[in-house]
């Protein structure tokens, strides 16, 4: 688990990274609630976008390895491509788990109305898995960390808008609603609605199932291309 250990170290190596990773969930707890929408406080509504952003930032380490030729060195080392990726992704997931725990149970501690905090945590965790896999897929198309980040930043605002994070999906034209279904944020929004309004368990299982399906799909696409 050498790669896992060092990825964790590198992820929290500098103070700025540490600040971004762990301050935002704390700040998010204290963001206000909307009057009519969203039904969760804003920090929880926007947390999905934060997870996507952090997933990409963390997986930038893999791109850095590629840019610096470290991936090439590792490709001839006695570590399989699968093991290298798995250890990286596990490290990123651990960081996201911590953030989700801080956000959800911090909110419970400070008396925020989260309806069903445990299921909210589960939802955020499955979304985190899908996000990390999405980030892996994203970086597999790029050689340069800066460019991948900049293009993603431009995409993220569009994803946030049509994915049900910034405005309710029902307000979008039909065409865009159909497009929204293909985005993981759509399922996150649906899951949040289930947590707030309740419903059958199979609905929640469907949401999480779709996110896990997305995870496998993105993982397959992202790991097909060898990084060296």
């Amino acid at each position: 688990m050498t790669v896992f250990h060092y990825v964790l170290k590198r992820s929290i190596a500098n103070k700025t990274s540490l600040l971004i990773l762990f301050l935002f969930p704390v700040v998010a707890i204290f963001l206000p609630s909307g009057e009519y929408w969203p039904h969760l406080p804003y920090g929880y509504q926007y947390f999905g976008i934060f997870i996507l952003f952090i997933s990409l930032k963390l997986s930038g380490l893999i791109l850095e390895d590629r840019m610096r030729g470290i991936a090439k060195k590792l490709s001839i080392a006695p570590i399989s491509h699968f093991s290298y990726l798995a250890q990286n992704l596990l490290a990123y997931f651990l960081i996201l788990v911590l953030q989700c725990l801080i956000l959800v149970y911090g909110g419970v501690f400070f008396g925020k109305e989260l309806y069903q905090p445990f299921w909210l945590l589960i939802l955020f965790l499955t979304f985190s898995m899908a996000s990390i896999a999405f980030a892996l897929m994203w970086i597999s198309f790029f050689r340069n960390k800066e460019i991948s980040m900049l293009i993603f930043m431009s995409m993220i605002s569009v994803i946030a808008l049509i994915g049900g994070v910034l405005i309710p999906i029902e307000l979008l034209p039909e065409v865009l609603q159909k497009v929204a279904i293909t985005l993981p944020t759509f399922w996150l929004a649906w899951g949040i609605d289930w947590i707030i309004f309740g419903g059958e368990v199979k609905e929640f299982l469907l949401v999480n199932g779709m996110l896990i399906l997305y995870m496998f799909l993105f993982l397959i696409i992202g790991s097909v291309k060898k990084l060296h």
Binding site: S154, S157, V158, L161, I167, L172, P173, L176
Partner: peptide, 14 residues
């Protein structure tokens, strides 16, 4: 340029 055009257009429909 492109991103604001896309976002503004989406809001136009919304």
């Amino acid at each position: 340029l492109v991103v604001p055009i896309i976002l503004i257009t989406i809001f136009y429909f919304v």
